[in-house]
Amino acid sequence: MVDPLALARAHGLFNVLGGVWPLLSLRTFEWVSGPKTDEWLLQTCGGLLATAGWSMLRVSPGPEGLRHARRLGVGTAVTLLVIDLVYVPLGRIRPTYLIDAATEIAWLTAWWRTGRLPARTVRA
């Protein structure tokens, strides 16, 4: 079993770092990932990824917070994985994105290994 709170914090930090990288150093990001034509779109995606990561870092340790973290974690990992697996074969993005695909699969596996989270609490 994987501790969901520790996973939320680790995945959140990963997403924050990945999101701010192109914002802080577009040159090094493009050196690894390849040149981009729409810098504004890259910066928008980076900002959204960092925001999702920040939300995961700030999640409360209770059942509701952990379910929220899982939704964010699985949602971002699936989205990035699909992009990697669709656009690498089409030649639109570099094969280095397959490293990211493997990482996203690892995050999804970790979220799966957290098991069932406690049932939702009903408020009267």
Rank of each mutant, 00 (worst) to 15 (best):
P22D: 04
L81S: 09
Y97L: 07
G12K: 00
V86D: 13
T51G: 06
A52I: 12
I105S: 15
F29R: 01
F14V: 04
V78H: 10
D38R: 13
V59K: 06
R67Y: 08
L48H: 01
R92T: 08
I83C: 15
A119P: 09
A106T: 14
V78R: 14
T44E: 06
G47L: 04
G53S: 09
L81T: 14
L17N: 03
E39G: 02
E104D: 13
W31F: 09
L13K: 00
W112K: 15
D3F: 02
V88S: 12
W107V: 12
T114D: 15
G73P: 09
W111T: 13
G19H: 01
R71K: 11
P61K: 11
M1C: 00
T37I: 03
T44A: 11
S55H: 12
G73Q: 10
M56N: 06
L108C: 09
L41G: 07
R92L: 09
D84I: 07
W21L: 05
G73V: 13
R116T: 11
E39C: 02
E64A: 15
L72W: 04
H68M: 13
L42T: 15
A10M: 02
L7E: 02
R58W: 06
A106P: 09
C45Q: 13
A10P: 00
R71N: 08
E64N: 10
V88M: 08
L108K: 15
R94W: 01
H11C: 04
L48N: 03
D38S: 08
T109N: 12
R120N: 07
W21K: 03
G12D: 03
L41E: 10
V122M: 10
L90T: 11
V82K: 13
L24E: 02
V59Q: 07
V32L: 14
S55R: 15
V16Q: 01
V32S: 05
L80G: 09
L26F: 05
W40T: 07
T96V: 14
G46E: 03
W107C: 11
W21N: 01
D84F: 06
L66Q: 11
L117I: 14
G91V: 08
R113V: 05
P4I: 01
R9A: 02
E104T: 11
L57F: 12
I93G: 11
L26G: 06
G46H: 04
P63F: 05
P118N: 14
L13R: 00
G91R: 09
G46K: 04
L49I: 11
I99E: 05
G19Q: 01
L5C: 00
L5D: 04
V20N: 03
S60I: 03
R94A: 09
I83F: 13
G18S: 08
L23F: 02
E39N: 07
F14Q: 02
Y97P: 02
L117H: 10
E30L: 03
E64V: 13
L17S: 06
V32A: 12
P61M: 07
F29M: 01
L72D: 07
V86I: 12
W40M: 06
P95Q: 06
L7A: 04
G34H: 04
Y87C: 11
L85R: 15
T76D: 12
E39A: 03
P61N: 15
W40K: 07
L42M: 13
P95I: 08
T37F: 03
V82H: 11
D38I: 06
A77Y: 14
L23I: 02
W31V: 03
